[in-house]
Amino acid sequence: MSPRNGRPNVPVTIDGQDVKAFEGESILELARRVGVPIPTLCHLEGLSIHGGCRLCLVDTGDHKLKPACATEVTAELDVTTTNAEIREHRRRIVELLFAEGNHICAFCVSSGSCELQDLATEHHVDHIHYELGYERHDVDASHPKYVLDRDRCVLCTRCVRVCDEVEGAHVWDVAMRGNEARIVAGMDIPWGESSACTWCGKCVVVCPTGALSFKGRATGEMRHDPELVAFLARARDEGEWIDRRAEA
């Protein structure tokens, strides 16, 4: 969220509440500012918008639901952030995420620090209606400090974006397509062989699930810290590392 100048002056209704939004603010930014919860997964403050997880879809009266992360407010917009139908869609999306990989919390390194696990609880997912998928992808444990378990990946691309946009290394990208899509290092080389990787670990701290973790952690021992990125991005935007003494 970049710093905003002036006062919010765009009139918007969000869940029946009349509020003022900043020019160019997204529905999600507005909602968070005024304390209306909207679930997200791929979105992370400080990174570019991806729009892939589809959990933040809201009703703006348009014929299609809109991703709150990517939809800018307009004057007199009337947003419904949740209703029975949207809740159902969100629950099914969470179930689909569970069903497509190995998201078995009982033996996951990130259990207890997992946004997918939290989303399941929030959306009252007490079982999965869809056939569960089992391991299909490789684990990459070639890095000395970190591990990538692709079967726990939800393809939010936070790692891809943080590496490219904040660290500037662009180690990660997505290869293949559909349910064979997977995160790869470089041109699909073992992570440990990537000369671009700086070992900074930002991808690991922003990962919402157990896909990326510190090596050597056992079940439930991994703790992520995605907010770190917002801190870095804000500091960068405000030039906190620039020595201003010369200017003065």
Partner: peptide, 21 residues
Amino acid sequence: CRDESCGKCTPCRAGTVKMYA
């Protein structure tokens, strides 16, 4: 559709697999 889904968004990527199933 399952084979041609790009994999970017959850409903299409995982949904086409489960609808097919």
